[in-house]
Amino acid sequence: MKKKTKWKIAALSVLVIGVSASGWAYWSLDPSRHFENQDIPVLAQPQTAEAAAPVQEPPKPDMKSFNILILGVDSRSGEPSRTDVMMAVHVVPTERKVNILSLPRDTRVPVKGVGLTKLNHAHIVGESKGGNQQGTLVATQTVSDFLGVPINYYAKTNFEGFKRIVDKVGGVDLTLEKDLHLKWQKTTIPKGQQHFDGDTALKVVRERYGAEGGEFGRQEEQSQVLRSIAIELLKPDKIPQLATLLPSLRKDILDTNFSDSDLISLAWLFKGVGNDNFRYTQLPGHSGREEDPLVGSNLYYWIPDSESVKKIKEDLF
């Protein structure tokens, strides 16, 4: 009888510890609390005269917000790395607000020491001077200068890493509004709800010509895939695997200053954000051709509309 009582006490102790641990994890990792207790880093501040701080309402005293730069790098062996995907993300954890601004890789922006060139050249400029980390820093500073906002966090992955991330979360669900023609694969993905593995998801986010709206259609699909990954990570059957998934996910993310607990909290936030609190915007502007000082030839550019960009900064950041 005593033996049975001891087992009951032991089982009850384990249950209490488990419940307490779950409660602590919920309390500490909930996005509305987690980032409030962090010292938010500042990786880049606007350094150009043109990049004046955006006009916005004063933040609440107890509210922290931060900006993330997401970089998808087109890295090939022996070649400099261009940023094929760039997104600036503004997050207000206490209000569960996420604003995403897609930055076309061909955007004409000033890069320090070069002049007006393509946004995706910024990483090459830095990498040529100091390797991968310097590439990140120059790209981060360039976006900070262009938008006139600080950049607090970054996450950078290459295409092989992206494929592995998607496969590790079991693929992603994506709704296509229209048929998507993959020009280079000479195939068509029908409209509607689709489930993609890593290889197919990569083809979708890289497709520029078959997507409805071309480059801008591709940017919207990229933001949908990003949110889908977060949702997959936090499905009930995935949560117990998160602790073991994180080390391998970090191998697939080339570079990030997020901690493991930051990443879990951020994924939690993305999953919990509804359509009313999730805003996606593309960079206004027009197509044009200009002489590029880096390559010394006439190139295609996306030339941003400065007044519209200022308005976006005020609304989103």
Rank of each mutant, 00 (worst) to 15 (best):
G288T: 05
D315M: 10
V143I: 12
R105C: 01
F196Q: 04
P80R: 03
Q222S: 04
L119W: 02
I68W: 03
H195M: 09
L174W: 07
T187W: 11
S306H: 13
A267H: 06
D167Q: 10
R279G: 08
E220K: 15
A122M: 07
L103F: 10
T136D: 07
P61A: 15
R206C: 06
A11Y: 09
E221W: 15
Y300G: 09
G148H: 09
A25I: 14
G214M: 02
V204W: 04
I151W: 00
Q224H: 14
G192V: 02
Q134R: 12
P31E: 05
V89Y: 05
P304A: 00
V309T: 09
L101T: 01
F196I: 03
D84C: 01
S261L: 14
E220C: 07
K183C: 10
L316T: 05
T94Q: 12
T175F: 11
A122D: 02
G131S: 08
K112A: 13
L266F: 11
D30W: 11
P236K: 00
S297T: 13
S75N: 10
H121K: 08
S22C: 15
G192K: 10
A201I: 03
P80V: 01
P236E: 02
S65C: 08
H195T: 08
G23I: 05
K235S: 07
Y26S: 11
F216W: 09
P61V: 15
S306Y: 14
K129Q: 15
F66E: 06
V172S: 05
V295R: 14
A52M: 14
K178C: 08
L263C: 03
H34F: 11
M87A: 07
S13A: 15
Q224P: 03
D30E: 15
R105I: 04
R76D: 08
R96F: 13
G170R: 02
H286F: 14
S102T: 04
Y280C: 07
E177K: 10
Q241H: 12
S128G: 11
T256L: 08
P59M: 07
K156E: 15
L137I: 15
A201F: 06
K238D: 10
V89E: 01
N132C: 12
P61L: 13
N298L: 12
L246S: 02
I264E: 01
H34G: 05
G213L: 06
V309F: 13
V143C: 00
D106F: 03
V143H: 00
V91S: 01
P247N: 05
V143R: 00
D30H: 13
T187D: 11
W27K: 10
E177H: 05
S22H: 12
K251Q: 12
V205T: 06
G115F: 04
G161I: 04
P247F: 00
V309S: 06
S223C: 08
K238V: 04
D276M: 06
E232K: 12
L234D: 06
I9Y: 14
S13E: 05
T187L: 12
N120Q: 02
Q282I: 07
L119M: 11
S228H: 03
A49M: 15
K191T: 05
H181S: 12
S81A: 12
G135T: 01
L71R: 07
S248W: 06
K191M: 13
T187C: 07
Q45V: 12
D199Q: 11
G213M: 08
N132V: 09
N99V: 01
W302N: 00
N37Q: 14
E36L: 14
K60V: 10
L316C: 06
K163G: 02
V89K: 00
T142S: 03
K203E: 09
